[in-house]
Simulated assay, not measured.
Amino acid sequence: MQQTDRFVSLVPVGDLKEGFLSSQVVEGRAVVVARTADGVYVYDATCPHADFQFTAARLRGGCEIECQMHGARFKADATGEVTKGPAKEPLWVLESRVVDGMVEVLLDW
């Protein structure tokens, strides 16, 4: 089977508030979009620690995603790395880009 990777439109950047996490669904998959002073990043919406679903929320300090279940924190950047446990694995960062004011995400799943 041949897989065709393609970018699809997700949300206008203007709809995203800096310092916040936005919940979205693309092709049936729940994702979250973080807008920080450094850019826009898209992640799988599931916390790697306990399979908890992230929802729209304020970013801690404007740059960290905090899991509402156990308080694990992750960098809201291109790495999604853990900054505070109990999580040990980083967020699953999805490849994304901004084109003509629209956040697009690469469908490669």
Rank of each mutant, 00 (worst) to 15 (best):
V40Y: 01
V105I: 15
R35I: 01
F20L: 05
G80K: 08
V33W: 05
R60C: 07
V25K: 14
E104D: 07
L107F: 07
Y43C: 09
V105L: 12
G39F: 04
K17F: 00
A87R: 10
E27Y: 01
G71F: 13
F54Q: 02
G80V: 05
L94Q: 10
L10H: 07
L10A: 12
V99A: 11
L16D: 13
S9F: 01
V32E: 09
E18Q: 15
E104A: 09
K17S: 06
K17I: 03
R73N: 06
A37T: 13
A87L: 08
V82M: 11
G39R: 02
V11D: 03
P12S: 14
S9T: 09
V13M: 00
E27K: 10
L91D: 02
G71Y: 10
R97M: 04
Q2M: 00
L91A: 02
T55R: 10
V26I: 14
A76Q: 07
V93M: 05
A34R: 03
T36H: 05
K17T: 12
L21S: 03
V26Y: 03
R97F: 00
L106P: 00
G71E: 09
D44K: 02
Q24V: 15
T79N: 09
A72V: 04
M69I: 12
V26C: 12
A34C: 13
E104H: 04
A45E: 01
Y41Q: 06
S96H: 03
A56S: 15
A50L: 11
V8E: 04
G14Q: 12
R58V: 15
V25W: 03
Y41T: 04
T55H: 13
L106R: 08
H49G: 07
V98A: 04
E104K: 07
G101T: 11
T83L: 10
C67F: 05
D44W: 01
R97I: 00
G85W: 02
R97P: 01
A34G: 06
E18C: 10
D108H: 10
L94P: 00
E81V: 08
P48D: 13
D100K: 15
L107Y: 06
V42E: 02
V40D: 03
R58W: 07
F54H: 04
G85T: 02
G101K: 08
L107E: 11
S22E: 13
H70M: 05
E89N: 11
V40E: 02
V32Q: 08
V42I: 11
V32K: 12
D38H: 13
V26N: 01
L16V: 10
S23T: 12
D5Q: 14
W92T: 14
R60M: 08
A37G: 05
T83C: 06
